[in-house]
Amino acid sequence: MTKRALIAAVALTAVFTPQAGAVARGVDVADGQYRFNARLTSGPTQVCTGALIGAKWVATALHCMASGEFGEAVIGATTSDGAGGQRRRVVSYTGSDQADFAVAELDRPAEGITPLLVGSTAPKPGDVVRLVGWGKTGGTEVAKRLQTGQFVVDRVDEWVLGVRGWGPNPNTSACASDSGGPYFAERPDGTAVLVSVENSGPLCPHSELETTSRVDPHAKWVGQLINKGATDR
């Protein structure tokens, strides 16, 4: 895995043709919950979602990096004005050669926020995962408050997972600007483990299959990236 040039990212965007963005038919996230969330912006209109997986590393979708205008990440906020969050610049990214998955590097570490663990084992059909996202809620405007919903794993392919809405509604679904949003398993001990990131799906809200990129096939190089970054600081 290498830092991707703009031309490579644009080519991959054409392959995936993403349509996804906030969580439609989901629920508001309470203040202080899921502080590993990242709201990514570039240019005047592009909004994506991501998750802090290391002090200065954010997992997201590769197509979110395609513009070359890396922009800003706000970590740990629950409202779109960024209140209570930590603002950082995105300075580079490393992308997968096989899937719509990337890790963005921040200009400096986030402080006092526990990163989301990166899963290293494949999920199974029937597993329930949670998504948090900054996309649209089914209307025309991007969410003002972070949204969340639960999904059930329907299909496990080599590089992608297919998931369907599970709660609070069968048509809870990712929507525009949820791209890159983390799907994570919630363990009984309270630990959250990243399973996949949002790529694309039908127009929201919907109860059909949503396409997400598995992270476990990338766990080794992601771990090497994070550990190298910690050594470099």
Rank of each mutant, 00 (worst) to 15 (best):
P115G: 04
V15H: 13
L106A: 08
L146D: 07
D81C: 11
D189W: 01
E111L: 13
A9P: 02
Y93V: 01
S96E: 09
T94S: 10
R233N: 03
G167S: 15
T211D: 10
D31N: 11
L203A: 14
A59P: 10
P202E: 03
G112M: 10
F151N: 03
V118S: 07
E208V: 04
W57G: 00
R25S: 12
V90L: 15
R35W: 09
G50V: 06
Q224Y: 03
N199R: 02
A30I: 08
C175Q: 02
G126A: 00
V160L: 03
A99Q: 10
D31E: 14
T231D: 08
Q98F: 13
V132E: 02
T49P: 10
G201L: 07
V193P: 01
T60L: 11
F70G: 07
A55M: 06
T49H: 12
G133Y: 00
Q224L: 13
R39G: 09
L116H: 04
L106T: 14
E111G: 12
K136M: 08
A5I: 10
M1G: 10
Y34Q: 01
A99M: 10
S177P: 00
T137M: 14
V29E: 04
P109F: 12
D97K: 13
R187E: 15
L106F: 07
T17W: 04
A176E: 04
L52N: 01
A24S: 09
P217K: 14
Y34D: 02
T191C: 06
V58W: 05
G50C: 01
T231A: 15
A11L: 14
P125W: 09
V163A: 11
R4N: 02
L12D: 12
A219R: 12
F101G: 04
G165Y: 06
G229L: 11
P18W: 05
S196H: 05
Q33A: 13
E158T: 10
T2G: 07
G32H: 08
G126S: 04
V23F: 07
D127M: 09
A99W: 03
A61L: 10
I226K: 02
D100M: 09
H63E: 05
V195Q: 08
V15P: 09
P188V: 07
R89F: 02
T191M: 09
D154S: 07
V118D: 08
T148C: 01
G165K: 03
D127L: 08
E158Q: 10
E72D: 14
V142P: 01
T45N: 14
V10H: 09
R145H: 12
